[in-house]
Amino acid sequence: MTIREQPRPVLKRRTSRRSDWKVALVFLLPLFVMYGIYYLYSIGFLASTSTTKVSVTFFNSIDVGWRNYVQLLTDPVFIRSMVNNVLFACISIVAALTVAFFIATALATGVRAKRLFYLIFLLPALMPLSLVATIFGSMLTERTGVLNETLRAIGLGALAQPWLTQPGLAFAVVAVIFCYLIGLPIMYYTADLSALPTESLEAALLDGAGTFRIMRSIIYPMMRGTHITIVLSLLLGSFRSLEVVLFSTRGGPGQSTEIVGTYIYGFATSGGPTIGFVSAVSIIVLVIALVLSIAQMVITRPRKDMR
């Protein structure tokens, strides 16, 4: 982001004919070891267990053929959890590109109590997610939650809602938690703002543009690199946000807020003979993740060539 990419060396390195593959092998060895253990072995292991019915003891494994896959792909809850994953990712991206951008920009304009504001806005992102989500869950219960109690106390009792038992509201709650986790985007924007070229800002000021127009039309477009970094990191991270749902709505009500992480987690922690099924889910998720990565590469590649 703050690195302006230098022009590629026009001349090929003189040594480029010589292949460094032996050296490369040494440098890549740690990577191969980690990938070998955690990805290649994993995929093989998953593929072989995914056609069985077995518990986590791996005793008495029963071969069930494709049954796990069939069950999985016809399970509406699994499909919904995939869709939810995508929706939550989109929501957190929108929040990052708007709210986080606004907060970072506003705080960069020299407001008072800036440190306090930073503290408040960055805090949720630097705490364990399980902590944030747990607090949300308990704060939102209908009868005893502090939110409804506060609303009733200040005469807004009509706004008190069954936040966690209405599917629509519960979905919104999870979405809001994702919006609370925009600390990292705020930091990225803050950092980029401090390196902003001044000239265009001054030109805009001379034009007499208003604050929000400058934010929207001048600063926002200048941060394209940061936007891309943020979108990518949120997109890639979206599959990893198990805790947000697990500790707030637990996937409910009626599994309406389930995401892939909680779906797998539920089966994986059951202690029953569900490990074969979990492996099948894992395989499908891996395939999707790989496709997502390929898409990311395809999307970002042409832009590089145009530079």
């Binding site: 390195r13 040594t15 480029s16 010589r18 292949s19 460094d20 593959w21 050296v23 490369a24 440098f27 890549l28 990577l31 990938y35 955690y38 990805y39 072995y41 994993s42 292991f45 998953l46 267990t49 986590v56 791996f58 997109l235 890639l236 599959f239 990893r240 198990l242 892939v260 992480g261 797998i264 987690y265 994986a268 490990i275 979990v278 492996s279 894992s282 998720v285 891996l286 993740a289 790989l290 997502l292 990565s293 390929i294 990311q296 590469m297």
Partner: peptide
Amino acid sequence: LQFRGRELSFSAVLLFLAVPGIAILVPVYR
């Protein structure tokens, strides 16, 4: 470093960019 298949192997590494931990839970356990 210059070596044959550099870009290809790099792409192969990036394939795993979006893999969530939970997907390799069972094998990691093992």
